[in-house]
């Protein structure tokens, strides 16, 4: 089956089996391996991408369901620059192995596009569909708070390791 969509601003068409998952189209046909497959059941969120600006889990969607859609993956989030969320993860140690990170960043970026002043609770709620098995979530929340401040044009809070030392 032919499927046509926009991925990171580029028009792409691919001949896929009707059952091909969107994440496999992205990773295998388009070689966009930044989107990861974790659980293949919708729990872990490592496969999160944006579909028409909203975060979706690309392992629970068929490629053909994305016909005509505008998809953004981690590779296309900032086109060579760093998105504020990416910068936040780097600055606030929001990752260790990095496997969950693209999905975390896409979920966080989707959340901040709707609300640039989320409370700590809203941030936690916003990433509850994304699992991290390395860092715990503390620094991830701090990274998203850093990004939110940057997006509002505010100075991010000092890192805790500066405040407490």
């Amino acid at each position: 089956m032919e499927v046509s969509l926009t991925v990171n601003g580029r028009n792409v068409s691919s001949d896929v089996e009707p059952r091909t998952l969107l994440v496999h189209l992205l990773r295998e046909d388009l070689d966009l391996t930044g989107t990861h497959v974790g659980c293949e059941s919708g729990y872990c969120g490592a496969c999160t991408v944006h579909l028409d600006g909203k975060p979706v889990k690309s392992c629970t969607m068929l490629a053909v369901q994305a016909e005509g859609a505008d998809i953004t993956t981690i590779e296309g989030l900032a086109n060579g620059e760093l998105h504020a969320v990416q910068e936040g993860f780097w600055e606030r140690h929001g990752l260790q192995c990095g496997y969950c990170t693209p999905g975390m960043i896409m979920s966080a970026a989707g959340m901040l596009a709707e609300n640039d002043s989320p409370s700590e609770g809203e941030i936690k709620h916003g990433i509850e569909g994304n699992l991290c098995r390395c860092t715990g979530y503390h620094n991830i929340v701090k990274a998203i708070e850093y990004a939110a401040a940057k997006m509002r044009g505010d100075e991010p809070a000092e890192p805790e390791w500066e405040v407490s030392s």
């Binding site: 981690i74 990095g98 990170t101």
Partner: peptide
């Protein structure tokens, strides 16, 4: 001081390479 990890730019931009990649 704060030392930013050198491996992070690849990891946060989807440019890292895992076995499945």
């Amino acid at each position: 001081g704060v030392v930013r990890r050198r491996e992070d730019p690849a990891l946060i931009q989807g440019k890292a390479r895992y076995v499945d990649d």
